[in-house]
Design a protein around this nucleic acid. Sequence first.
DNA 1: CATACAGTTCGACGGTTGTCCAACTGTTTA
DNA 2: TAAACAGTTGGACAACCGTCGAACTGTATG
Lengths: 102, 102
Amino acid sequence: MDVEQQTTLAPGQFERIAKALADPRRFAMLSSIGQACDECANQALCRDFPVSKATISHHLKELATAGLVEQVREGQYVNYRLRADVVEAYAAELVRRVARPG
Amino acid sequence: MDVEQQTTLAPGQFERIAKALADPRRFAMLSSIGQACDECANQALCRDFPVSKATISHHLKELATAGLVEQVREGQYVNYRLRADVVEAYAAELVRRVARPG
DNA sequence: CATACAGTTCGACGGTTGTCCAACTGTTTA
DNA sequence: TAAACAGTTGGACAACCGTCGAACTGTATG
């Protein structure tokens, strides 16, 4: 029942990811999620970043909409999991799009 | 007398690149420069993108400041050359920064 | 059921940024 | 040298975005 690995990007996803990565703090959150083994608790982000819950929720929504993280509810808590495959797909697509075909 | 290939990013360059890539039109210009064999004339960009010269100049400055393109003056004209090595260095650093060490 | 807690949504505010026009610098050419 | 052309810079404006507090939804626990 695992989510499938993503090797290619959906239409518009490339642009959404580029925007999601552009804000330093949001990227730091993504990186923080990536550092966690398996999942990262939302509470850990609230503890580690000096911004309000509302702002964290907003950033995480952007990351999720871009497909960079997955949201996992556990009762009243929320955990996040990095989609490393999506990051890698974006990196590959980035290099591909600036390269001359052939 | 070639410029050296860049395999690692300068301090702050990662953030500058992320921001530079975030605007779709600016990225399209970068891609357009990449499609050209060798260099891309500024005039080609002025022809291909429906924005003013001022806007193009602004975007290209951002790309150059991020190190993604090189500016080459030829008399009154300006050409741009893609720094594919920098794009690749960014892509690698991106994957590295979200991955757990080890 | 009531209280407390985790997270989301909403409205507002301020800073950033993409865009243009106009004025400027620098280069070619008549 | 004057006119034309290529590109840059500065100022202005609108749209976007990161941020917060407050109100809300949903979940646990007394």
